[in-house]
């Protein structure tokens, strides 16, 4: 995970608006670097990492809202929030599935069969939860969200 101290050129004496842009762009790039892995869905770490990066990004945007023109800023902020939300549904199920898989070994044979049924139920829910996430990614790609976001925050 990127930390602010590692973001190039950040200095305590720079103006907030300059630092805000650097922080937002760095977090955004980190978030988008996980997109392909999250779409693929095989390795659950990508969804986790992308969700965390999106939360860090929205927390930074909460703090820096006054550094940017309100209308376009809000538009981008809402999209970041939508990414966090749609990924949250998938991630919550990944966490539950992993937890119950871990708990399985501590249960008796009969109990394990019950929980195995529950895990399969959760896996189906996960497949359903991935659909809105993939739809959102598709819409953002069609709208050239990544390029426009970077253009706004880099050039402002």
């Amino acid at each position: 995970m990127i930390t602010v101290s590692k973001i190039e050129k950040i200095s305590p004496d720079s103006t907030l608006e300059v630092c805000a842009r650097q922080v937002i762009v760095s977090y955004f790039r980190e978030m988008m670097s996980c997109e392909e892995g999250a779409k693929d869905g095989t390795d659950i770490r990508f969804v986790h990492d992308m969700r965390v990066a999106s939360r860090r990004l929205s927390a930074a945007m909460d703090n820096f809202a006054d550094c940017f023109p309100e209308k376009p800023f809000k538009k981008y902020y809402k999209k970041v929030k939508a990414i966090t939300r749609t990924m949250g549904a998938v991630r919550d199920l990944d966490v539950l599935i992993a937890r119950f898989q871990k708990e399985m070994v501590t249960l008796t044979g009969a109990e394990q069969a019950d929980i195995q049924g529950f895990i399969e139920h959760l896996q189906q829910e996960r497949e359903d939860a991935r659909k809105p996430m993939l739809t959102l990614f598709g819409k953002l790609e069609a709208a050239d969200f990544e390029t426009k976001f970077l253009e706004f925050f880099v050039s402002f």
């Binding site: 950040i10 305590p12 004496d13 103006t15 907030l16 608006e17 703090n63 809202a65 006054d66």
Partner: peptide, 11 residues
């Protein structure tokens, strides 16, 4: 968050 001054330092 209120009172932010974009032209003032990050610090």
């Amino acid at each position: 968050i209120i009172g932010v001054v974009p032209k003032q330092s990050y610090h």
